[in-house]
Design a binder for these strands. Structure first.
Lengths: 191, 191
DNA sequence: TTCATTTCTTGCCTTATGGCAAGTGTGATT
DNA sequence: AATCACACTTGCCATAAGGCAAGAAATGAA
């Protein structure tokens, strides 16, 4: 369960708590294209990815599919708001590859959340981190060129470029797949 | 203190709790251009706006000032992450007008947070709401034209258009003030 | 009032990105 | 092998938005 230790290492969780938390996880397998969560669902379990890649997305009012995030190894593939507030999500979470995941049912997650102070703190940090990253993404969309955003993604998450189709990467970057294709052509000699 | 009742009305807060919470607030006055929080600060108090308008912004690496939000009447003018996690913020919060605000010192905020379950829930909802709105803003920047984003702002927060200079509104919408000026010219006959 | 500063507008031209459509490649299925 | 679906590229042109600079308008200070 070392993968889980990685996820929870940064918070005020004691060794004993860590044991309790890790034991609460159950390993499941998700097939490519399966949904972990769909629009309208209220998250009934907490899911983190041990192996594989998940994509979250929404449809805008023109019916365009906009990628809101990629969730990989040791990251959490659930809408934090839907889980914590038990409200329906507006996002879809779909496996891009076969995945191995750890899950905790919501009622058990809630038990841990209320009984282990460190886990509660960790949950808040998770939400904070999500917010922080989204702020950066938003600012990046406003101020950076598409090419720079692509460069950053390539630098910080190279595995996504290997595993996800171009059109999903493009909508994550806020451009069309046509434009991304041209940008890649431009930047090919940079590597 | 009816303004405060408005802010806290949606959560699981009892009447007695509401009294305790409202009593914890202290009213202060903020002058135009004063900072409520600056980059590097860790939020030492919780602040909500009774009257006036506050702008939050960051500088990108080119030195451009990017407006991340406007905070008006009955809204909370503090970085939620900095407050909850007691970490330095990367944003500036500056009064665009003279403001009347309610504040709670951090240590008292924390007492309430840990002693009143409903307040704790409310805090989580606040963070969720912040996240939710930011997601929508991000998607809007990706999929909507600048003119549509301007229309939405005009529809949903008309008072901001009255109180904030064009350049701040422009950077909030993700465009230059020149472009916003042209868009306004285009849309002037829409009202 | 006068002057200075800031805010907003506008003209001219450039650049980034998009829309469409054709074409290439690749892997899966039969 | 033939076919199909999907992923990706590319050419041509359209459009949205930006950069710069001049000027107009509003605001505030002396």
């Amino acid at each position: 369960m070392t993968a889980l230790h990685t996820i929870y290492q940064h918070s005020l969780i004691t060794t004993a708590d860590m044991e309790t938390i890790c034991k609460a996880h159950r390993r499941i397998h998700i097939c490519k294209d399966d949904f972990l969560l769909q629009k309208g669902d209220t998250a009934k379990s907490y899911v983190c990815v041990e192996e594989g890649l998940v994509r979250s997305y929404v449809y805008d009012y023109d019916g365009n599919d906009i990628t809101t995030g990629f969730i990989g190894k040791n990251e959490i593939a659930i809408d934090v708001v839907s889980l914590f507030n038990q409200v329906p999500t507006v996002e879809y979470f779909q496996a891009l590859t076969d995945c191995s995941c750890f899950i905790i049912e919501f009622h058990e997650f809630q038990l841990l959340y209320h009984s282990i102070k460190g886990f509660n703190e960790w949950g808040r940090s998770w939400m904070s981190e999500t917010l922080f990253q989204l702020k950066h993404r938003t600012i990046s969309i406003i101020t950076d060129s598409a090419a720079e955003r692509y460069r950053r993604l390539r630098r910080e998450h190279p595995q996504i470029l290997q595993q996800a189709p171009l059109k999903y990467i493009a909508s994550y970057l806020g451009i069309t797949d046509t434009s991304l294709s041209r940008i890649r052509k431009e930047l090919v000699n940079e590597i």
